[in-house]
């Protein structure tokens, strides 16, 4: 029987869980809303962003998605609001806003 992380939760019975805790599908952590942890929120000013992408590798949460060489926004479902991206940005394109709300 194929079991997906999507279907496994704290109410799953032992018959409904994978043997030995193995997971045989990639990157299931994407299902987790770590964005709810945020106490501060990065706000991207698209007009100021030069798409230098310097902020991208510094993000511990892979939450600054890049498409065709351009920063396309912030993944707020996962961003924990550490503020590193705002600190790294040389153009003032990312600022931190108080609170977790987008």
């Amino acid at each position: 029987m194929k079991l997906s992380a999507r279907d496994i939760n704290e109410n799953s019975t032992w018959q409904e869980m994978t043997l030995g805790g193995e997971i045989y599908e990639p990157a299931t952590s994407k299902l987790v809303n770590t964005g709810a942890w945020r106490t501060n929120t990065p706000v991207l000013d698209v007009a100021k962003c030069r798409h230098c992408l310097m902020c991208v590798p510094y993000c511990p949460d892979s939450s600054l998605p890049v498409l065709y060489g351009r920063l396309v926004g912030v993944d707020y479902y996962h961003c924990k609001g550490c503020g590193i991206c705002a600190e790294v940005c040389s153009f003032g394109a990312i600022t931190m806003k108080e609170g977790g709300e987008v």
């Binding site: 990157a27 952590s29 511990p60 949460d61 939450s63 924990k80 550490c82």
Partner: peptide, 18 residues
């Protein structure tokens, strides 16, 4: 290295793995 892991906000380990 997908998001949704439970490392602390700003953790250097996540940056290293990526």
């Amino acid at each position: 290295f997908a998001p949704g892991h439970r490392l602390c906000a700003g953790c250097g380990a996540g940056i290293a793995v990526r």
